[in-house]
């Protein structure tokens, strides 16, 4: 364990900025879960935290440990890769499930089934 005080000033400033921005963005996404009115609107909100929010925090972590251990620490890229590949899959599955439930129960009409806009 390396004491955090060894981090030089500029790096500490940058890391703090990155982590704060990422956390703020994630919090914004989570408040979107509360503020938006319907499920289909809410489903857009957590993407904020999992795309840019996660990227900023992971970049902060990478910078912090690269400077502290004076060697490139890049294994955070793995989390980023994993999160950015899996979030779309879960959200797509969830929206499809929600839509098929809503159509079954007649709450939502299927989005314009016969009109074709192939102009």
């Amino acid at each position: 364990m390396i004491p955090i005080a060894e981090l030089p000033g500029w790096a500490a400033f940058l890391v703090a900025l990155l982590v704060l921005a990422g956390a703020a963005l994630t919090l914004t996404g989570a408040t979107g879960l509360l503020r938006l009115r319907t499920f289909y609107e809410r489903v857009h909100a957590p993407t904020l935290g999992t795309t840019l929010g996660a990227t900023l925090i992971l970049a902060g972590s990478m910078l912090c440990f690269t400077v502290l251990q004076s060697r490139p620490v890049v294994h955070e890229v793995l989390i980023l890769l994993f999160v950015s590949l899996t979030t779309p899959v879960t959200l797509m599955l969830l929206v499809r499930a929600a839509l098929s439930r809503d159509i079954q129960e007649g709450r939502v009409s299927p989005p314009q089934p016969d009109k074709d806009r192939s102009s």
Binding site: M1, V43, A45, P46, C64, F65, A97
Partner: peptide, 27 residues
């Protein structure tokens, strides 16, 4: 579906919180 979406968001925020702890404690 709202609950599942919230659970997914909960997990993501928890993961980021772990990383923040990691930076704070320097390990």
């Amino acid at each position: 579906q709202d609950r599942i979406l919230a659970l997914d968001s909960f997990y993501a925020s928890g993961m980021l919180l772990m990383l923040t702890f990691g930076i704070k404690s320097g390990t």
